[in-house]
Simulated assay, not measured.
Amino acid sequence: MQNSEKEVEELCLIIRSTGQKGEDGHVSVTFGQLFETYVTISNKVVGILLRARKHGLVRFEGEMLWQGKDDDVVITLLE
């Protein structure tokens, strides 16, 4: 498995373990929560999120996420 695939898989695991399951059955976490948890592992969290979205693994509003400004954006795990 390529390193970038491992990073995306790890990100999904972190969302699953730190997020809350909604009524639709999907697990969601805010960008602020995810950033605080994930930044200790990798400073590339935004790039990994964008890759995960491209592969249909997560959903969130906006083209880009910025620490501080987008802390309340909800990231939903789709798998």
Rank of each mutant, 00 (worst) to 15 (best):
D71C: 01
S28K: 07
T18A: 09
S42P: 12
E61D: 15
T18W: 06
C12G: 09
M64R: 13
V45P: 01
K21Y: 14
K69N: 06
L57Q: 15
R53L: 13
L50V: 12
R16H: 13
A52D: 03
H26V: 14
G19L: 09
C12A: 10
T37N: 08
L34D: 00
V45S: 01
A52Q: 05
F31W: 05
E36P: 11
G68W: 03
D71A: 02
G25F: 15
L49S: 05
E63M: 09
L11K: 01
G19K: 06
A52Y: 08
G68R: 08
R53P: 11
K21R: 14
L65C: 03
D70P: 03
L13M: 15
Y38V: 08
Y38M: 02
E61R: 14
I14Y: 03
T30L: 05
E10A: 00
Y38F: 09
M64S: 11
L13N: 10
S42T: 06
L57R: 11
G62V: 02
K44D: 07
R59H: 14
L49T: 03
E23K: 15
Y38A: 07
N43F: 11
E23H: 11
G25S: 07
C12E: 04
R53I: 09
G62H: 03
M64F: 14
F35A: 01
G25E: 09
K54Q: 14
N43C: 06
